[in-house]
Amino acid sequence: MTAPVLSRKGRRSVWLRQFLIQGCWNYEGMQNVGFAYAILPALREFYAGRPEEALKAVKRHLEFFNTHPAMGAVILGAAVRLEEGVAAGEADPRSIGTFKVGLMGSLGAIGDAFFWGALRPMACAAGAILAMLHPLAGIVALLALYNGTHLVVRSRGFAAGMEGQDGAVAWLKKAALNIKTEDHKLAAAVLGGAYAGVYAGRHTVLGGDAFHAVVLFAVGVGLIRLFTALFRKAVSPSEILSFLFLLGVLILWD
């Protein structure tokens, strides 16, 4: 059987549909419906005129799936390539499930650490600092810093996945997201420190002396250390804010 090739239109459709991979996120299958939806245009082309095989393929992709949404692009691209092989009778359908399950956990962990733990704090801190100058500058900085990387990872990840399993693995090595995570965390620390410094500095008394400034700085550092320790003890920001609200109402409200 000749291997079917995904048309440009089908490829574009799958690429666009990856943005809806969490569209029906649920506790049982997590991104299963979203993944099946994203790969559907490819399945329609590969199994045209073979409805029973198409149905089996859709069912394969309705099984449990969960990874970081941006990293899902790599798996989606590679799954399309694998389905191509299955449709041509060159690959075992079970290899698709094995591949997805094998990759989704590790890519999820890499994606969570990179996107949620490093890139997002960095972009948000930059946005929050620039918003002090002008609101639009803050918003533009946040969106540009985050999406400049996010969309590139989605795009290149999908293209690498479409080159097959080897292409996906080679791209993941080349992308070196673990090193970038470290760099972005340092950038986030710089921006977070700057944010704390600006806000603490803005609350110094005009005409005060150096001693007051040093005391205020020390209090700021102490509070950050205290909040960090509380976060590590699984105290949520909501609990801290609620405590502050109670403190405000009980003590300060005349």
């Binding site: 949620w116 704090p121 948000c124 340092l186 710089v190 420190g193 700057a194 976060f231």
Partner: peptide, 28 residues
Amino acid sequence: LLGAASVYSCSRTERTSAVFFLTMAVVF
């Protein structure tokens, strides 16, 4: 400062503490 602590706690690496507080001191 609670917001800054949130950034600090999710961007922890070996060098984060020094970088964070040094930047805070300079900007302050």
